[in-house]
Design a protein around this nucleic acid. Sequence first.
DNA 1: ATGATTATTTGACTTAGGTCAAATTTTCGC
DNA 2: GCGAAAATTTGACCTAAGTCAAATAATCAT
Lengths: 164, 164
Amino acid sequence: MNKKFTKGSCLLKPGQICTSHILVKKGIARKFYKHNDKEITTEIYFHDDVAVSLDSYIMRKPADVYIEALTELEVTIIDYSRFLDVKTKYAEVMMLDKIFIEYYAVWFEQRLKEFQTMDASQRYLNLLEKEPKIIQQLSVTIIASYLNVSLETLSRIRSKITRK
Amino acid sequence: MNKKFTKGSCLLKPGQICTSHILVKKGIARKFYKHNDKEITTEIYFHDDVAVSLDSYIMRKPADVYIEALTELEVTIIDYSRFLDVKTKYAEVMMLDKIFIEYYAVWFEQRLKEFQTMDASQRYLNLLEKEPKIIQQLSVTIIASYLNVSLETLSRIRSKITRK
DNA sequence: ATGATTATTTGACTTAGGTCAAATTTTCGC
DNA sequence: GCGAAAATTTGACCTAAGTCAAATAATCAT
């Protein structure tokens, strides 16, 4: 089921239960949570990426994250209840769902390692290498909140790099 | 298939492919990786916990982590090939495997959030609350490497807390 | 028990990165 | 294009936590 969202609108808000997967078809979205009024961006979605609040979806509990359209956005909503029905019938679909979560878990492990082993500049350079689209298309504010540094620090990192 | 390991021995080393899940029956184990000669502990396993190098297991690629016995250790090895065979036959088993990974992913997400939002003392207090066994039974060195702080800093955090 | 090894604590110093404030640049509505 | 609002950069300063070194404390083998 296809849907459109305007820039700045939210596809999911804290308190809602995430019952579906969101497949981005056009535009950019992000997931973030608030901590002491600070926004921390955890994921950024481009074409064909899938957005979901994993713990809300799995535990059937209210989400604690926002999923927000960063541009005009077109998505396909994959409804959980329908999906569940298909899953019980077709082992293949269930297998795909499992593979999705496996890769998601590996991605989390990788990202955790980045925070444990890299300082701010290394994280920036790593992101530049691995996901240049994020650097190219998003604002300093959003990139900083994705790297978990202050905007000022990110700005300094960038100027130091370009000065070289 | 049951196996015993002596304290300090490794159940998995970098370079090996992790083809099985390890179910701890007795003793304590940990997973860690080395970064610039520093050991970073990522997980600690007690009775009935399951140890696996997820990315090695899923991607069938050489592991980059150690799984080490911290005490005399008794485990049950669940071999991947056998398990795979069972999985194709019994959807139930596959479902359990999927649930395992789902919870694992949620756990990673949670842990990532801890690093993004808590300072060293908060992480310590959080661990004390959520996994007191780790604080009670392991050395400062291991706890520090699990919290990703230096041993000196952890020692100072502890003395500050007990002084209160 | 005693000396040796290992683990933990304490001290002095350094540094990455945060905060707050001001300056500058960019973006956008009209 | 022009002024206002928003985003980014720069500066000054501060703090959490790291490093290195030395001092205690705990553990272990003989």
